[in-house]
Nucleic acid binder design. Structure first.
Lengths: 202, 202
DNA sequence: AAGAAGCTAGCACGACTGTGTTATAAAAGG
DNA sequence: CCTTTTATAACACAGTCGTGCTAGCTTCTT
């Protein structure tokens, strides 16, 4: 029997089962039994890989964060910095099935983290990484001379971060193709405002 | 014994008990028993006013929406439209205890509404009212000639709405006085951008 | 005074929860 | 080949859940 290598793979499988359950029925349905059944295992088996439920949920959330981060890192950073930033943000928006799934899981955990200290710490980590990502985006624009003059970089990073989170939230709550278009248009309008194409910087 | 009049008051009391439980322990702890105990009643009594749990939760959420709406309506609309809009948005942010409570309840229900069709309809109502409120704010700015030229009112309403929701989310997840300042500063920066003081409209 | 209506409390039912414990099968290492 | 670790399963325990039902209490109406 394969050893540790596959144990990790098993844990990932189980985390994905968590996602499916959360996506279909909500976080409150992500019980040990439901997740085990979703993964095609017995509860006993599941508990061989995760001794407690919080351990399982924490692992599932951490994995979501890593996936998102990975996708952002994979964006091609050459070329027009405005386009690069746009692509990065596109990777965060719930525009297709898998990304929508990630966002829903993110929201469910986020809401619970307000009240559950266990998750709060983990959420804080992810939050910090995301905040850094947005700071980097703004700096990228500024370094390229694309950022509108007179803007405070720190404030703009936080503003962009908040805007994107709000857009994600709205896209989740109003599913549909038109809402996807609205989401991208909203982000686009914001980027045009803070980093207008050189021609019409006034 | 007072009749119907107080039945409504009782329902309100119970809704407030729901809020306290949600605030302290999260939405998943808002069971019939917990809420009844919080209100100092038996489950049987509670079920005399709300026959099912969803009825109770729906009522509690609807009441939150009404409170927020009420507070926004109470804002003095005379004077500088920029200041008026700022005041309205301040009423939505979780800057003090009661408003923070409302926002937490709002977030908890919002997250569940993604998955629970019962709540989704109600959420949609509140969303529509809020979207209208932001449209009105933008129109108010435009009518006063304070809105920066070249901006699409519809897009700007959605953008401001998303930004505020994102700011609320961040303020909830990073409690503390500094985070309150950040929240107001972020909103302030945005308003300055879309509606600069007449002097420095360039 | 007496009945009606509104209100409160409590219990019972079946289902589901997280977590322990124990038993069995499969693979790995010696 | 035999032992040790890993994996899977199944069951038990104590608790909570939503909800139905019944009985008693308080106030209002007549």
């Amino acid at each position: 029997m394969p050893k540790l290598v596959d144990a990790q793979a098993r844990r990932t499988e189980l985390a994905e089962a968590v996602w499916r359950v959360v996506l279909r029925d909500g976080l409150e349905q992500a019980s040990v039994r439901n997740v085990a059944r979703e993964a095609g295992l017995s509860t006993g088996s599941l508990r061989h890989f995760f001794t407690t439920q919080s351990e399982l949920l924490e692992f599932a959330l951490r994995l979501v964060g890593e996936r998102i981060e990975e996708r952002i890192r994979a964006v091609d950073t050459t070329g027009d910095p405005r386009a690069v930033v746009r692509s990065m943000i596109d990777e965060m928006l719930p525009l297709d099935r898998p990304r929508r799934g990630e966002c829903e899981v993110w929201l469910a955990f986020t809401a619970r983290a307000v009240v559950e200290p266990t998750l709060a710490g983990l959420r804080k980590d992810i939050d910090k990484r995301l905040a850094d990502a947005f700071s980097t985006m703004i700096r990228r624009l500024a370094d390229a001379g694309a950022l509108r003059s007179g803007l405070d970089q720190k404030v703009e990073a936080e503003r962009l971060y908040a805007l994107v989170d709000g857009v994600i939230l709205h896209a989740l709550l109003r599913p549909g193709r038109t809402s996807n278009a609205t989401a991208r248009a909203t982000v686009g309008a914001h980027l045009d405002q803070i980093a207008p194409a050189a021609a019409d910087e006034r």
